[in-house]
Design a protein around this nucleic acid. Structure first.
Lengths: 281, 281
DNA sequence: TATGGATTGGAATTATTATTTCATATTGCC
DNA sequence: GGCAATATGAAATAATAATTCCAATCCATA
């Protein structure tokens, strides 16, 4: 065993991919299986793995030997090590972050707390996004002449990001700011051919709700991002998204909302480009 | 085996913790070891685990039986299952997201791409935050009379969030907006007793850089959040943070920057509260 | 402190699993 | 198309690991 044996999964993976085409059929078969089902290699027995991959146990051992290991067992160790590391690389780290943050050890803990809250929120939303609503929202926004973006206070940063991104994508948009008292007039210009993205979380800013009400009464369709079905925003909206953000130290994360906002914006941009192309053709 | 056997790790854990005090000494010893080193149980052999825990293999089996399993092997399955799930619950899921996003399957892929980018960025920053810089920045900002917040374009949402949070914490602050032409005068008011949080990423908005230069020449200390040591912002800053945000579809995530911004803000708030308390005492 | 029951250690046993071997099949090459 | 080299399948064998068993020890209780 003087030749260089891959001792970590990434090296192993690379090695396999390099040699892929020079491997005999059955060996290639088990190689593909190994990269596709690393967990099975980590936990299975030579016999069970061979069966799942549709080869003989001896082939599995030859595969290991071809890679420079002295048997299946040593190959398996690499797959097990990977699981150990992977595992500690996230969930446990997040748990550790949370634990550190909770026991409140100084300023670093504050940082860890916010990182953990943001990660949790992202994790959560990625499983919960309603794909139909997402498509509906994109369709609705893509055909709008002007997209109005409405959000106050905590949600305002998201709105300003949307406005920035829409601008970069050359999509006409209007941010309804809280600052000047011109909101009423701005809203007055909106027509049913336009659309609104409204964002508001509990405790809902009264101004945001009121403006959403007025604008929906003008027949302008609203896409809302909010935090529950009881949200007053939901009742005015054509489509609405529920985003649950984790909080830390009384401040809620914005990461999930941001990710959704970015995705909406870019998807609308893409949809418009596609539509434009079709019209020309 | 009619009694209820814990089939998932959490249940098992709870069961062990409940019975902890009624277990015989050696069994308790292996129980503690199991909860402390779940990975070892998942991968080890009865003999190796027993040795590490300082008991006999037979004790390990008795432990498993006491919990209702019919042997060590079935107990081990629970520990292995946990690793599988844990693993697929994040890293692999993220990889899957990325893969889906890359193969570009419709709008859902866009969403997945942004979620993945945000997760990656958070993951990254949590390992890279320089704790000393963080403490320095907090100290510097905590003693400022007014905190100026300076950011344009893509970074503006972060600035507006900081301004909002500082306001909620009753810390005097001033957002230097790009809109009106009053920036120069606003900046003119800043003194060395104040401080600035400046945020800018490549391609650096010229206005942001210019304003940072002017304000630093007035002797106002700057805390910068930027993306590399070559950033023009870094040279004006007393303390600066490097934040590497992953991007998707040409838009960069803001999640790591946001988390850092929130942490900074809240930490400053906390430091001020502490200082206030001490002064009174 | 004697006694019964529970607990533990250590070796023997049994089961499972990896590996080797050898006959057979396949492939590439002249 | 025939030959050698290589690859594959299947079963035998060797190794390893789980489990069981029994004697020794510990502990609570009378």
């Amino acid at each position: 065993m003087d030749e260089r044996v891959p001792r970590d999964f990434e090296t192993l993976r690379t090695t396999i991919l390099e040699r892929r085409h020079s491997l005999p059929k059955r060996i290639a078969q088990i190689a593909a299986y190994a990269l596709d089902n690393p967990d099975d290699i980590a936990f299975g027995t030579a016999a069970s793995i061979a069966a799942s991959a549709g080869v003989q146990p001896s082939t599995l051992i030859r595969f290991a030997q071809q890679l420079g290991f002295d048997g299946f067992t040593s190959l398996q160790l690499v797959f097990r090590e990977r699981l150990r590391e992977r595992n500690s690389s996230y969930d446990e780290r997040l748990a550790a972050l949370r634990a550190k943050a909770e026991e409140g050890a100084g300023h670093r803990a504050i940082f860890d707390g916010f990182v953990a809250a943001a990660s949790t929120s992202l994790n959560d939303i990625s499983g919960r996004l309603n794909e139909e609503h997402f498509e509906d929202a994109i369709a609705l926004l893509a055909k709008a002449e002007t997209i109005y973006v409405l959000a106050k206070r905590r949600s305002y940063p998201v709105a300003s990001y949307i406005a920035y991104a829409l601008g970069k994508l050359k999509i006409r948009n209007q941010l309804i700011e809280s600052a000047a008292g011109l909101n009423a007039e701005m809203i007055g210009f909106a027509s049913p051919r336009d659309a609104v993205i409204a964002i508001s979380f509990s405790p809902y800013a009264p101004a945001a709700i009121e403006e959403a009400r007025v604008i929906s009464e003008q027949g302008v369709p609203i896409v809302a991002i909010t935090d529950s079905s009881f949200s007053p925003l939901a009742q005015f909206a054509k489509v609405w998204f529920e985003v649950a953000e984790a909080d830390f130290a009384g401040f809620r994360s914005l990461s999930a909302t941001m990710a959704l906002a970015m995705a909406l914006t870019v998807a609308v941009g893409e949809k418009r480009r596609d539509a434009g192309r079709k019209r020309k053709a």
